[in-house]
Nucleic acid binder design. Structure first.
Lengths: 150, 150
DNA sequence: CTGCAACTTCAAGCCGACTTGAAGTCAAGC
DNA sequence: GCTTGACTTCAAGTCGGCTTGAAGTTGCAG
């Protein structure tokens, strides 16, 4: 009850608990992935909430989302309050399907690889399945996503 | 028999068939992922073999390998000849397990997410499973891998 | 009140994986 | 034999996701 005491984390604490460098956390804040209040002196104080957000972002990266995409997903959640179960599950559901897709992708890849070995055709190079997204030879400038596929 | 005729590809042909930009193929060659002979005039001619190698590299990227790592895996294959089934399957097997691990990872992630929603604990942020590789706050300089985990 | 670790901002650097552009050369079809 | 498009090299740029460093400020333990 009353104004909370110990649930404002310094960036160092958040770093320790999330495993991310403080520089990364500042970067995340800059991108709007997490938010902080400031002390009178200008230092950041994060709500515990931020821990969840950071964790979400890291998990999202694991399944191939960019920080921007992760941010978009998080946009559905309140910044200052803990999300309700409903809010949270809405967000979670969207990227759960993303995970499923990704698993399916990998499984196809593996099975096909096995198939090629099994049958001895060794046709990987010319096999359509391995080149599923076909021509991308002429895309755009700038960095490509690691895996432009999807 | 005799010196082959139509199994030397120009970089443009290789590009068309692999879906990669010619600039990317040159880059791959520079990294030693693929190899070419040169015409009298200095233009590249790739063996069909290169198609397989490129496909392997792309597939390897999909499961999270860097180009260097992909190259290391390919190092087990002959540069100039088609690999034997044995050679190929040796290479393939190593990264097949990589796929399996990755699938397992994703499955854990998904299941855990579901669990958190189901039980309403919403503890994602503090949940050890989401932060499996713990402290990495002080690593090194330079770019981090997208997913330093693993 | 002091000292020191932890914080602040800002600019610059870096890595991987390429792309772009300039300036020039090759090869093959008419 | 010429033209034209595909090729060549090289240097520089780009993008995401941070890290590093400099120079200065805060906040808490003693």
């Amino acid at each position: 009850m009353g104004p909370s005491r110990h649930d404002r984390l310094t960036i160092g604490e958040l770093s320790a608990r999330s495993g991310l460098a403080t520089s990364a956390l500042r970067y995340y804040e800059e991108l709007g992935l997490i938010h902080s209040e400031r002390t009178a002196g200008g230092q950041r104080r994060f709500a515990r909430q931020a821990l969840r957000r950071v964790a979400f972002v890291r998990a999202a990266q694991r399944v191939g989302l960019s920080l921007d995409e992760a941010g978009a997903a998080l946009a559905g959640l309140p910044v200052d309050r803990s999300p309700t179960a409903t809010e949270w599950s809405r967000v979670a559901r969207t990227w759960q399907s993303r995970i499923d897709e990704q698993i399916e992708d990998l499984r196809r890849l593996r099975d096909h690889l096995t198939g090629c070995i099994g049958c001895g055709c060794l046709s990987l190079g010319t096999c359509a399945l391995y080149n599923p997204h076909d021509v991308q030879g002429a895309d755009g400038p700038g960095a490509r996503k690691l895996l432009p596929s999807r």
